[in-house]
Amino acid sequence: MAISVKVMERPDPESTSYLRAALSGMALTFKHLMNPIKVTQQYPEEQTELHPRWRGTHVMETHADGRPKCVACGLCPTVCPANCIRLVGGEDDQGNRFPLVYEIDEFRCIFCGMCQEVCPVEAIHVGQHFENAEYTRDRFVYDLDRLMEQDHPSTHLWDPSDPASE
């Protein structure tokens, strides 16, 4: 079958006015100017509302006395697919296992949230936060103190009353 090509007939530019097209464009602009539904957000004055299961900068939960909840079991560095968690276990003065070193490299992290899923004591969490810009790269390695200081809310990846989504 032969291919047929439709040739458009263009109006002669000498005898055509663009006024009508320009006016219809302006009409659209004015229509949006008056539209009460606005989608543009004035960030950073206006903050985006994050999805409830947003996985952002990590938070280490603490006990009431300020100790980290982490028991240094080593499951999060084991499960971490990006290999961005460094953990050295030790013992505190009360004989409890706790992390001597706990570091997360937020640059390497892929924010999959598996560290939170695997944690047996609900210590490490991903959080409702994404603005973690820094001036130097080494500042992206969050140590234990910095993870405990994070004041944004941590994310609930599942409903505590129905953890298996039944």
Binding site: A72, C73, L75, P120, V121
Partner: peptide, 8 residues
């Protein structure tokens, strides 16, 4: 207490 047990 497998998370804090050395034998785990």
């Amino acid at each position: 207490d497998c998370p804090i047990c050395d034998m785990s």
